[in-house]
Amino acid sequence: MAHDDDLPVRKRRRLEALVLDSLGVDELRAYIGELTEEIARVEADIGRKQGHRSAADAFFKPR
């Protein structure tokens, strides 16, 4: 009998997979638009965080 600890750790999904079969072309295009907006939002946050990191690295850089 396997224990839960023996099971491989599954990577957490941040987005639920949408059932695409019931969507029409216009709905699929709208969905792509939503995903594109979310990607842009995440990329902007990555840029902001990298900027903070660069500033911190420059501040603490040995002289």
Rank of each mutant, 00 (worst) to 15 (best):
residue 31 Y to N: 06
residue 43 E to M: 09
residue 16 E to Y: 02
residue 26 D to S: 15
residue 58 A to E: 06
residue 19 V to A: 14
residue 22 S to Y: 01
residue 60 F to R: 10
residue 38 E to T: 08
residue 4 D to K: 02
residue 24 G to I: 04
residue 36 T to S: 13
residue 33 G to W: 03
residue 17 A to H: 11
residue 35 L to Y: 06
residue 9 V to F: 06
residue 7 L to M: 06
residue 1 M to H: 01
residue 5 D to F: 02
residue 62 P to W: 03
residue 49 K to R: 10
residue 34 E to F: 15
residue 35 L to H: 05
residue 35 L to E: 12
residue 59 F to G: 07
residue 44 A to M: 08
residue 42 V to A: 06
residue 26 D to Q: 13
residue 61 K to P: 07
residue 25 V to E: 11
residue 13 R to Y: 03
residue 15 L to I: 00
residue 26 D to A: 13
residue 56 A to I: 15
residue 46 I to D: 09
residue 28 L to S: 07
residue 59 F to K: 11
residue 53 R to N: 14
residue 7 L to H: 03
residue 54 S to P: 00
residue 51 G to C: 09
residue 28 L to K: 03
residue 17 A to D: 12
residue 59 F to T: 12
residue 24 G to A: 07
residue 41 R to E: 12
residue 32 I to F: 03
residue 48 R to N: 09
residue 45 D to T: 15
residue 48 R to K: 12
residue 6 D to K: 01
residue 43 E to P: 10
residue 34 E to Q: 12
residue 1 M to Y: 01
residue 42 V to K: 04
residue 56 A to M: 09
residue 55 A to C: 06
residue 47 G to S: 15
residue 54 S to R: 12
residue 38 E to F: 15
residue 9 V to T: 05
residue 51 G to I: 02
residue 17 A to K: 11
residue 24 G to D: 13
residue 42 V to L: 12
residue 39 I to D: 14
residue 31 Y to Q: 13
residue 39 I to T: 05
residue 1 M to N: 01
residue 62 P to Q: 10
residue 14 R to S: 01
residue 42 V to T: 05
residue 46 I to T: 09
residue 7 L to G: 01
residue 42 V to R: 08
residue 31 Y to R: 04
residue 56 A to Q: 09
residue 20 L to Q: 02
residue 37 E to P: 06
residue 20 L to I: 01
residue 11 K to G: 07
residue 57 D to I: 14
residue 55 A to P: 04
residue 39 I to M: 03
residue 18 L to H: 05
residue 42 V to W: 04
residue 10 R to W: 03
residue 37 E to R: 14
residue 25 V to T: 08
residue 61 K to H: 05
residue 16 E to V: 14
residue 23 L to H: 00
residue 34 E to P: 01
residue 26 D to I: 04
residue 37 E to A: 15
residue 36 T to D: 14
residue 40 A to Q: 11
residue 40 A to E: 15
residue 31 Y to P: 00
residue 15 L to N: 05
residue 22 S to I: 06
residue 60 F to H: 11
residue 13 R to P: 10
residue 39 I to K: 09
residue 34 E to G: 05
residue 60 F to Y: 13
residue 60 F to N: 12
residue 7 L to P: 00
residue 43 E to N: 11
residue 30 A to Q: 08
residue 32 I to G: 03
residue 10 R to T: 09
residue 3 H to W: 00
residue 60 F to L: 14
residue 6 D to P: 07
